[in-house]
């Protein structure tokens, strides 16, 4: 019956919103390969791959961060199942401890909304509106930008 046009797919789970796997998920059997006191940095690298992040100022801790984000209608991405695995090394570089951060340790933090301003060429309203009509070729400097507030040539 190859001649009949293919039937359209059956609409299945119409209303599901896609869940997207994020970050570097570490499975249970990968974790079993890392034994505290024995494995070194190279073993962890081989077993789990390079870490998502390391300690900012001390390289003694490797973090494997993963989460599942869900597209929600009319709202921002929702975070489901945020998971952090910490691999701590001692001075000699062997694994001291491997632990997974529990959910109760993850408080809900309100992020500060203030931003540090960056100086630079602010675009005038007129220029944003019509800055692009009749543009010649990409990146050409035909559209006159106001000389940067920080710049300004010092002629002879």
């Amino acid at each position: 019956c190859g001649y009949l046009p293919p039937l359209p797919e059956r609409p299945r789970d119409v209303f599901t919103t896609p869940a997207i796997n994020r970050g570097h998920a570490v499975t249970a059997d990968q974790l079993r390969q890392v034994t505290p006191g024995v494995s070194t940095r190279a073993d962890v690298q081989a077993a789990l791959g390079s870490p998502s992040q390391t300690g900012t100022f001390a390289d003694g801790e490797w973090y494997y961060i993963s989460s599942v984000s869900q597209v929600r209608p009319a709202r921002a991405l929702a975070v489901r199942d945020q998971r952090v695995v910490v691999v701590a090394f001692d001075g000699a570089g062997t694994v001291r401890e491997v632990r997974q951060v529990e959910d109760r340790e993850m408080p809900r933090v309100a992020f500060v909304t203030r931003e540090t301003p960056t100086p630079g060429t602010e675009r005038t309203i007129m220029q944003t509106l019509f800055g692009n009509i009749g543009r010649v070729g990409p990146g050409s400097s035909m559209t006159p930008q106001t000389p940067g507030s920080a710049g300004g040539g010092s002629g002879r």
Binding site: T16, T17, P73, A74
Partner: peptide, 12 residues
């Protein structure tokens, strides 16, 4: 008007 999508196929 306000619109959003449930997934790549369904929009409201």
């Amino acid at each position: 008007r306000a619109g959003y999508e449930f997934n790549e196929r369904l929009r409201q």
